[in-house]
């Protein structure tokens, strides 16, 4: 699925340059599950951006299904994101003025789905995350956990190959964390997708079959045969 080699991302901050990623080599198998952890500022989010085609590395290649995202034209990259990649963000990133159902529908817009078919699929996705009763609510009327469920429905409604989650429970109460984690794990198993998640939760990290730790832009991968 993913083949990263020599991926470097350099940010310019005034006169200082920061290497958020410093020569990352990484392989991720189809249908695999990777948990990423590391200190704040280590480069976790930057790595996720490279994997999701949100940004391009300064150097190196990010091969996704044999295609180098680093050198793909913008229009093709947009298409890859629309069709294959689902995102879940730490702060949910829902459109505040749209209802839950409409938020989920936004993921189907670039696929050309319209009208009743689009509404129906969005409703199904919300139902699968347990929000079948909240289709018409705007984010402000939902709890944090519910908002993240809407975001998860939005990420999965397009049936992507990859689900990328950047600290999906980072903004949630303790009580909601397990709920969301269970949901994500269940969906991963059910859909058979490649699941890459950044988390600070050490109990999850311990249970992960494959753990990438990223410090100062460098990645070390630990396999956990026991998990």
């Amino acid at each position: 699925m993913y083949q990263l080699s020599g991926v470097t991302k350099r940010y310019q901050r005034g006169k200082k340059t920061v290497d958020a990623l410093a020569g990352v080599d990484l392989t991720i198998e189809d249908g695999g599950r990777l948990v990423i952890q590391g200190p704040t500022g280590g480069g976790k989010s930057t790595l996720l951006q490279m994997l999701g085609g949100l940004d391009r590395p300064t150097s190196g290649t990010v091969e996704f299904d044999g295609v180098d995202l680093a050198s793909l034209p913008e229009a093709r990259l947009t298409k890859v994101r629309a069709e294959n990649i689902g995102f879940v963000f730490q702060s949910f990133n829902l459109i505040p003025t749209l209802t839950a159902q409409e938020n989920v529908e936004t993921a189907l817009v670039p696929l050309g789905l319209k009208g009743a078919a689009r509404r129906e699929r969005a409703a199904e996705a919300l139902d699968s995350v347990g929000l079948g009763e909240r289709l018409g609510h705007v984010p402000g009327e939902l709890s944090g956990g519910q908002q993240q469920r809407v975001a998860i429905a939005r990420a999965l409604v397009k049936r992507p190959k990859v689900l990328l989650a950047d600290e999906p429970t980072g903004n949630l109460d303790e009580s909601m964390r397990d709920e969301i984690m269970e949901l994500l794990e269940g969906l991963w198993k059910e859909h058979g997708l490649t699941f890459i998640m950044v988390t600070h939760d050490s109990s999850i990290a311990r249970r992960a079959p494959r753990l990438a730790t990223i410090r100062k832009g460098r990645v070390t991968v630990t396999e956990n045969a026991a998990a």
Binding site: R81, A82, N93, T106
Partner: peptide
Amino acid sequence: VREFGTLKALGWKSGR
């Protein structure tokens, strides 16, 4: 910014 960035991340074309 984040709202529009999110839409682009979801695969919305810049023109849209």
